[in-house]
Design a protein around this nucleic acid. Structure first.
Lengths: 215, 215
DNA sequence: AAAAAACTAGTGGTTTTCCGCCAGACGAAG
DNA sequence: CTTCGTCTGGCGGAAAACCACTAGTTTTTT
């Protein structure tokens, strides 16, 4: 079995150096270069064989999201592991969606990094354990601790929100619930008031964030 | 360091037996009994010291969710790892919310189970790798289908969408971009046409799904 | 250089949302 | 029994969104 050819993309040279140290000192891995943004990554994979890219998300020129999507489309054999400073689950999801196979935090341990590489090269996913914790914690705090504005709403109001989020107009909603359009507007008004929202755009975003509707 | 006292709760004796085998043959672990439902778990923890419960979610009498919540309240020192047949993220979330520190699938490997126990006993979370995969996979397939309507849009249109999604009105957007409100409306119209949307509510949802905006 | 696409701006009109205010009916909780 | 919250219904008006159609300018592509 050949060595796994690894490319590191990050706009901070320190990170590249650090990962190079880890990769170079591991038998079955080969460090084949660094890139400071997405465009460079693409230039490099065009000129030489690459098996795996450790990809930072925040980069100038072309960011990790865009670059991963590009690689996934044009070089589907190249595996990507996302690197990030922040344990942001949403960002992780987006990277995965764009074709990344794993997600590592930058302060992750050497063993974790090597584990991630081997898992991903065998076609499995790998996610930083730290990420998984925050993944669950994330919506814990909203729902369990402190209070949510969701509690201020009545069942009927929640129902109205759901219908609004189905792109229905006041008339359609009134029809569906067999109530007057005035009533629906009245509810809508109270909702806006309680949630301190400006318009229905804000309402949709709130509804998604508070899991009143699913995307 | 004392052995970790483990209680297994599951309404299938086979599972209990299997886990007993794993626990008993591991040095630092001690199997102290099985329970076939939540009530039994509570009876057992009242009569003897328990460090950790491997808790099935689906049980008669009192299920894993309820029991975990109870333990978390009355015996906060007892760590709980949820056991489940199904890799259902929603269920996992609820268990975590109720106080479980980890989540294992029943077909998980011995190493995973032992890893989970040690991680959890050291105060960290542990989630079955399989679960994490399905967690992310969930909304994967939709977007991977090659072409997206996003390609139909121009940069300016994307920009307008982002501003709309920031709950800005046409006037505000026109102001910010130093163009006429008519132009903004014109763009908005084209967007609606291209994306076949009914109103801005649909636009926000589309924007989130297609990652034009972040929540 | 010509063609195509994108951005710009306008007119004119309809529909929908948003806002404030009011008020009766009903059930649950004090 | 009275109060509170919820659901209901209504009025009038302002603001914003939506729709269709036209058309000049700029940028990009061919």
């Amino acid at each position: 079995m050949d060595k796994i050819k690894v490319l590191v993309a990050d706009d901070h040279q320190v990170i590249i150096d650090g990962l190079e140290a880890i990769i170079s000192t591991t038998d079955h891995l080969e460090f084949i270069g660094g890139a400071s943004n997405g465009k460079e990554v693409i230039t490099k994979v065009e000129s030489q064989a690459v098996d795996l890219v450790l990809m930072d998300i925040n980069m100038p020129e072309m960011d990790g999201l865009e670059c991963t999507a590009y690689l996934n489309k044009h070089y589907p054999k190249i595996r990507v592991i996302a690197l990030s400073m922040h344990d942001n689950p949403r960002l992780a999801k987006r990277m995965i969606k764009n074709g990344a196979f794993g997600f590592l935090l930058k302060n992750s341990s050497k063993v974790n990094i090597l584990k991630a590489i081997s898992e991903v090269m065998e076609g499995r996913n790998f996610f930083d354990p730290m990420l998984m914790s925050t993944f669950f914690d994330a919506d814990n705090k909203k729902s369990s601790s402190s209070f949510s504005k969701k509690d201020l709403l009545t069942k009927r109001e929640i129902q109205i929100i759901q219908l609004i989020c189905q792109e229905k107009t006041t008339t359609e909603i009134a029809d569906e619930l067999s109530i007057s359009t005035h009533t629906v507007e009245s509810h809508r008004g109270n909702i806006m008031l309680k949630l301190e929202l400006k318009n229905s755009v804000g309402l949709v975003k709130w509804a998604i964030q508070n899991e009143v509707i699913e995307l």
